[in-house]
Design a protein around this nucleic acid. Structure first.
Lengths: 152, 152
DNA sequence: TTGTGATACATGCAAACGCATATATCTGAT
DNA sequence: ATCAGATATATGCGTTTGCATGTATCACAA
């Protein structure tokens, strides 16, 4: 029964770490041309080696589908991503980085990665960092999978 | 040097876990009268045993100061929180839960806590939950403290 | 006490968000 | 071939957000 208490404390701690670090990173003078949310999309696309569906993108970005849809439109207009209707499924759209977009992602990403590494290593030991990753991956995987179960 | 890579992987995993679980919790039919962000404020206030400054609140909530200021105004109008100018500092405002607000927070909180506990214990062992909490607390503490250092 | 800068919060405004819903396409049953 | 869902994305609209800035109060030096 104290299990529930511990679980909630852990979730609260995760939220707190997320908020504190996000604020810290967001305060950096680095997001003049791309907001953090936009970068999130660019980063996700950078990890894909082929054009990706918007709905798939939406699984990685904490935005409603309409908001993501419009964010994609804006990024297209800026020329950092390209979208084309899916050949295999006329309803769908596939988006990918343009060369300019990949370039932009790399430049921002390099700086941002430095900040992230600095923050993490300043607070945690190597083992703790590894443990954090393993635990969070479990959480993410399981949290997504359970959506198919009963509706909470 | 692979330290940087590990750190970034861990941060990405944390972001992913946050996004997945936040979506999952947000999808629950529970936020009809209070949005998650509003609940975040109510929850933070519930943990305080005296009226709290808006700037202090802002340290716990991932919102800009103006956005939080207006969120507070809305919650006041709904009668779930009360605000009064700080006696000791005329610039400041102190906010606290009303009885109705505390009641609301309790009701929502009970249900939400159940969901959180279910998600955490389904994915993690007791020890992992505890490790997650400890690590995230370190991150949150250190991330906030380092703001006084050089500007990244 | 008066002025100068810092701090706490509020407000104007354009941009972005979420919800509900529209549109287009696909899938499978008849 | 047709039609009833289901799925993928887009759009209308009211609300909320962030940025820049305004207002009020504080702290402290001259």
């Amino acid at each position: 029964m104290s299990d529930a208490r511990t679980s909630n404390d852990a979730w609260e701690a995760l939220l707190s770490a997320h908020a504190v670090l996000t604020k810290r990173f967001g305060a950096e003078d680095l997001w003049r041309h791309v907001s953090m949310r936009e970068y999130d999309v660019l980063y996700t696309l950078a990890k894909c080696h082929e054009p990706i569906r918007i709905s798939e993108l939406n699984r990685h970005v904490l935005l409603s589908q309409p908001a993501l849809s419009r964010l994609v439109q804006r990024l297209c207009r800026r020329g950092v991503i390209a979208s084309a209707s899916d050949a295999a499924d006329g309803r769908g759209v596939r988006v990918s980085l343009t060369d300019a977009g990949r370039d932009l992602q790399c430049r921002i990403g390099r700086q941002h990665a430095r900040s992230v590494a600095r923050a993490m290593t300043a607070a945690l030991s190597r083992d703790e960092v590894r443990a954090l990753e393993a635990i969070c991956l479990k959480l993410a995987r399981d949290g997504a999978a359970d959506m198919t179960g009963r509706p909470a």
